[in-house]
């Protein structure tokens, strides 16, 4: 499973991108469950965010959903922070 996170907006308006391929990871199943939940709770179009809030695009195996601060679900927040931290 290939998970891509794009973060835009925020006070600085600085874009960040990170991708992780979970296929060979020992916790691939955990990633899959987390990613499926995060995507299921996302939106097809970008929600209008709050001023200076981050906007996120989560793409899992080619399917993209949107969400934005501060209204993230726990799974979305966890997935975003893990991919931005552990992905490249």
């Amino acid at each position: 499973m290939r998970i891509h996170v794009k973060r835009t907006g925020g006070f600085g308006g600085i874009e960040r991108n990170a991708t992780i391929d979970t296929s060979d990871l020992p916790d691939a199943e955990d990633w899959r469950a987390l990613a499926e939940h995060a995507v299921a709770e996302g939106r097809d179009t970008p929600p209008v965010g709050v001023p200076d809030g981050f906007c996120y695009q989560i793409t899992v195996d080619g399917h993209t959903v949107h969400c934005s601060d501060p209204r993230l679900t726990d799974d979305q927040r966890k997935l975003i922070s893990r991919v931005l931290k552990e992905g490249s």
């Binding site: 925020g10 006070f11 600085g12 709050v50 200076d52 809030g53 981050f54 601060d69 501060p70």
Partner: peptide
């Protein structure tokens, strides 16, 4: 949040992160 490099207005209040420890310091 943790390592949150941002600040925002949520419609009712201001919110400030401590910075991400790499690029941003305390907002």
């Amino acid at each position: 949040d943790q390592n949150y490099g941002n600040a925002f207005w949520d419609g009712n209040q201001m919110v400030f992160g401590d910075g991400d420890g790499e690029v941003f310091l305390d907002f």
